[in-house]
Amino acid sequence: MVFFRNRHFYFCRFIYLGIRYMNTKATKEMHINITVNLKKRFHATCVMKGKKMSQVVIELIEQWLESKEFSLTGETKSI
């Protein structure tokens, strides 16, 4: 009976993890070098605003790409 419970546990865990990660986009880790002071200011401001630092960086990259990204024809996208 213990074997059945363990099998059942692992099956439920597998299903849970599958559902949990179905709705997430694949991500890639990125490392940057910034000054200690800039990192402290950024972290403190994110905490005050209730946001994760990674989410703010993603938003900033998306905004930057909207204004700088080239289309396939080589022209800059208009805002």
Score class of each variant (00 low, 15 high):
Cys46Lys: 01
Phe42Asn: 00
Asn23Val: 12
Asn6Met: 11
Thr35His: 04
Ile79Arg: 07
Leu38Asp: 05
His31Pro: 01
His43Ile: 07
Glu62Ser: 07
Ile34Cys: 12
His8Trp: 10
Glu66Asn: 05
Glu69Asp: 08
Val2Lys: 09
Lys51Pro: 00
Ile32Met: 03
Ile61Thr: 05
Phe4Ser: 14
Phe14Leu: 13
Arg7Phe: 12
Ser54Pro: 03
Leu72Gly: 06
Ala26Gly: 10
Ala44Arg: 07
Arg20Asp: 11
Phe14Tyr: 15
Tyr16Glu: 02
Tyr16Cys: 07
Phe9Arg: 12
Ile32His: 04
Lys49Val: 08
Gln63Leu: 03
Ile79Ser: 07
Gln63Arg: 05
Val57Glu: 00
Ala44Glu: 12
Val2Asp: 13
Lys39Asn: 02
Phe70Gly: 00
Val56Asp: 04
Asn37Tyr: 03
Lys51Ser: 02
Ile32Gln: 03
Asn33Cys: 04
Lys28Met: 12
Ser78Cys: 04
Leu17Lys: 14
Ser78Phe: 04
Trp64Leu: 00
Val36Gln: 11
Arg41Val: 03
Ile58Gln: 12
Met53Asn: 06
Phe9Val: 08
Ser78Arg: 08
Leu38Met: 10
Thr27Asp: 14
Glu59Leu: 06
Phe70Leu: 08
Leu60Lys: 03
Met48Tyr: 05
Gly18Thr: 12
Ala26Leu: 14
Thr27Glu: 15
Thr73Asp: 10
Ala26Gln: 14
Arg5Tyr: 12
Ser67Ala: 08
Ser78Glu: 07
Lys52Glu: 08
Phe14Ile: 09
Thr45Ala: 15
Gly74Cys: 06
Leu60Ala: 10
Thr76Met: 05
Lys52Val: 02
Gly18Tyr: 04
Glu75Pro: 04
Met30Lys: 15
Ile15Leu: 10
Phe70Ala: 00
Tyr16Ala: 03
Thr27Ser: 15
Met22Gln: 14
Cys46Gly: 02
Met48His: 09
Ser67Val: 01
Ala44Asp: 14
Ser67Phe: 03
Leu17Phe: 14
Lys39Ala: 01
Lys51Cys: 00
Phe4Glu: 15
Gln63Tyr: 03
Ile61Ser: 01
Gly74Met: 04
Glu75Asn: 10
Lys51Gln: 09
Val2Leu: 11
Ile79Tyr: 05
Tyr21Thr: 13
Val56Pro: 01
Asn23Met: 14
Glu69Phe: 02
Ser54Trp: 05
Met22Tyr: 14
Val2Asn: 12
Arg20Pro: 07
Tyr16Asn: 05
Phe9Ser: 09
Phe14Ser: 15
Met1Asp: 07
Met53Gln: 09
Met1Cys: 09
Arg5Phe: 12
Val57Gln: 00
Leu38Tyr: 05
Ile61Phe: 05
Lys39Asp: 02
Gln63Trp: 03
Asn33Ile: 11
Met48Asp: 10
Ile19Phe: 10
Phe3Lys: 14
Tyr10Leu: 15
Phe9Thr: 09
His31Glu: 12
Arg7Trp: 13
Cys12Pro: 01
Asn23Ser: 14
Asn37Met: 06
